[in-house]
Computed example of a mutant assay.
Amino acid sequence: MIETHALTKRYGQTTVVDAVSLDFPPGGLSAIIGPNGAGKSTLLCMLARLLDADGGEVRLDGRALADWPNADLACRLAILRQDNHLAMRLSVRDLVSFGRYPHSKGRITPADREQIAAALAYMDLEAIADRFLDELSGGQRQRAFIAMVLAQDTDYILLDEPLNNLDLRHAHDMMRQLRQLADERGKTVLVVLHDINFAAAWSDRIIAMKNGRLLHAGPPAEIMRPEVLEEIYDLSMPVHQLGAHPAGLYWLPAAARE
Rank of each mutant, 00 (worst) to 15 (best):
S41W: 10
G12Q: 13
L136R: 00
I146C: 03
L166A: 11
L136T: 08
R169Q: 11
A221Y: 02
P102M: 09
L43R: 13
I108N: 12
A247N: 00
A117R: 14
M148H: 04
L215N: 11
L159C: 09
L22S: 05
V58D: 00
R63C: 04
L47P: 01
D134F: 08
M209F: 06
L43Q: 14
L65G: 06
A254V: 13
L159K: 13
N84H: 14
W68F: 05
R213G: 06
T188N: 07
R49M: 03
E114Q: 14
P162Y: 05
D167I: 03
T154L: 04
Q140T: 08
V92I: 06
T154G: 00
R93D: 03
G37E: 11
R176S: 09
L73A: 12
P238R: 12
P246S: 12
R169N: 12
V16C: 08
G243Y: 02
H194W: 08
N197F: 06
L178D: 10
V20P: 05
L252H: 07
A66R: 08
P246L: 02
F98E: 12
Q177T: 07
T15F: 00
L120K: 08
H103K: 07
D153T: 01
L249M: 14
L252D: 00
D183E: 15
I116F: 04
T188G: 04
R131V: 01
L163E: 13
Q115K: 14
H245F: 12
Y250L: 11
A147T: 04
I79E: 00
A171R: 05
C75D: 05
D130Q: 14
D23A: 07
L29A: 07
R93I: 07
